[in-house]
């Protein structure tokens, strides 16, 4: 589904990703762990198509397409989803209108008609239950006045509405209390199936108690330095990232 090969990325002439490679197949959950400043968020942003990054080397293939040729919205339309670490607030645009615009633009890109309003509302109610959102959420402005936990739940809710092929969760667990983390993880687990895939970027092991990864990758200084199964996450929790200092 996703093939990243020897990716080198710079921002403001500073190289952040230094030969990053990763292959993700459908049905898989990959966790990417690593200390601050190793390029984890850069990876999420580059995958989603944020401007300002310079790709100096390497390729990204998504579903057979050259991802780097697509604009951010085209990547989303192709089935890639980024759950933001810091979701923005959009005062004046309700969650319902925002998602209606989103879903209908994605449908339009596939030559489909807009979703009928009743079908949209029904889907919205279903998915709201999944992340335990209150009823007034529909009419509230996107993320405006939301707590940190609500914003993250909203990301998972949007993911559920858009039903992507590949979702990248950028430190979705940061700033969450244990209840919010359980809700977020539950959302991911319910959406996970044999046709889609997840990349969970996280700083701590604790999210991986709830979302069980097939692979755990350690990211250090702009590339993957070690790959293992879920036991690697526990090992990291215990020993920290010190041993990788030597590799650098």
């Amino acid at each position: 589904m996703l093939k990243i090969n020897n990716l080198h990325v710079s921002i403001d002439n500073k190289e952040i990703l230094k030969g990053f490679s990763l292959e993700v197949n459908k049905g898989e959950i990959h966790a990417i762990m690593g200390p601050n400043g190793t390029g984890k968020s850069t990876l999420g942003n580059v995958l989603a198509g944020k401007e300002g990054y310079v790709i100096t080397e390497g390729t990204i293939e998504f579903d057979g397409k050259n991802l780097l040729e697509l604009e951010a919205h085209e990547r989303a339309q192709a089935g890639l989803f980024l759950a933001f670490q810091y979701p923005i607030e959009i005062p004046g645009v309700s969650n319902a209108n925002f998602l209606k615009a989103s879903i209908n633009e994605i449908r339009k890109s596939k030559g489909e008609e807009p979703m009928p309003p009743n079908e949209f509302l029904k889907m919205m109610r279903e998915k709201m239950e999944l992340v335990e959102m209150k009823k007034d959420f529909i009419s509230r402005a996107v993320n405006q006045g939301f707590s940190g936990g609500e914003k993250k739940r909203n990301e998972i809710f949007q993911m559920a509405m858009l039903n992507p092929k590949l979702a990248v969760l950028d430190e979705t667990d940061s700033g969450l209390d244990i209840d919010a983390m359980r809700i977020v993880a539950n959302g991911v687990n319910k959406l996970h199936n044999s046709e889609n895939a997840f990349i969970v970027i996280t700083h701590y092991q604790r999210l991986l108690d709830y979302i069980i990864p097939d692979f755990v990758h350690v990211m250090y200084d702009g590339r993957i330095v070690k790959t293992g199964d879920k036991s690697l996450a526990l090992e990291l929790e215990e020993k920290g990232y010190e041993e990788f200092e030597l590799i650098k």
């Binding site: 990547r75 989303a76 959009i90 633009e105």
Partner: peptide, 11 residues
Amino acid sequence: ELFYLQARGIG
């Protein structure tokens, strides 16, 4: 802000 909306498929 623009990127957030684009990342949701909005042109």
